[in-house]
Amino acid sequence: MEKKMFHESVGQIEVPEEDVVKAIQAGIRKGSRMKPKRKPLFKTAAVSAAAAALFLSSGFLFPSMAKVMAEIPLLAKLYEHDKVAENLASQQLITELNEKTTYDGIDVTVIEAYYDGAIIGVTFDVRGDVKGDQDEIYAFYEIFDRDPNIEETMELVKLVPDGEGYKGHIQLSYPRSELPAEMKLPLNFLGIGEIDDSWKDEQGKWNFDVPILQLPYETITLGLATELGPHKVTLEKLITGKSSTAIEYTLTYPEGGQRVMLDLFDSKGKQIIGGTSDAKLEKKTENGIVIEKRRITIPMVLDSDFIEVQPVLESGEELGSVRIEL
């Protein structure tokens, strides 16, 4: 069979274009009802089977980790998008916990947590009467009791089947400006099972205050700035954790003006993408000028001598790049 023939045949399937566009839009509408409107603050670790398998197979893992994975597939599945957890686990820097809550025949137990630099990870176990197709079980949770000052407080996480129950892992960037050395993370689960549109309107049913202790980290004051017209970016601080890095910065721009986003590159010129998260910490407006404090977290150990920060306006115009030596 020739590819050409196949293409020609498939090409003859008539596409009802309008209906396809409608189907796409309907799907997105349904999705946006479940999803917080803006950019998610957290990166969930146990993701859709599709994405998971893709990354599992793309050689993203270190050889040593691949070996470990063969031995403990569940843990690997849970951590596959959380390089920080993977790294901390190998150094035994993850705290074991055993905090259990029961609601409606389902037990949720928080079993592990870490707090590295500005990144927090929590692993939990779900047992009991979970309804639905084993491969489509999600947990919907909120943090900080939906504090309106925090950009994103709710998120979905896909659970990984584990014997009689499930396990889930979440990773989030600490969303406040002060990084306390010790804290209790308010974490409430609103729904567990197959995705249900009504979860958004629910109250927390399995509620936790997860005790979290920060691992030692270093802070360096940067004070590096770059500007273009009325837009100014100042890199304030570099926070280096055991397995993650964070950059605190201030944006200054006219009210209603274009937003600035930061693209990060390593010393090989490769863009640093893997799960970086950019959170607003504070925002105030003075005489029509907005001053916004933000923190971008890089959830991995960087194999680079420096980070090249390239601020870009929405229009695509670039500000001068700034280099942070590591």
Partner: peptide
């Protein structure tokens, strides 16, 4: 479309 939209932020 629905599932991809929910999961897009997890694409690395």
């Amino acid at each position: 479309s629905y599932k991809a939209f929910l999961a897009i932020s997890q694409l690395k």
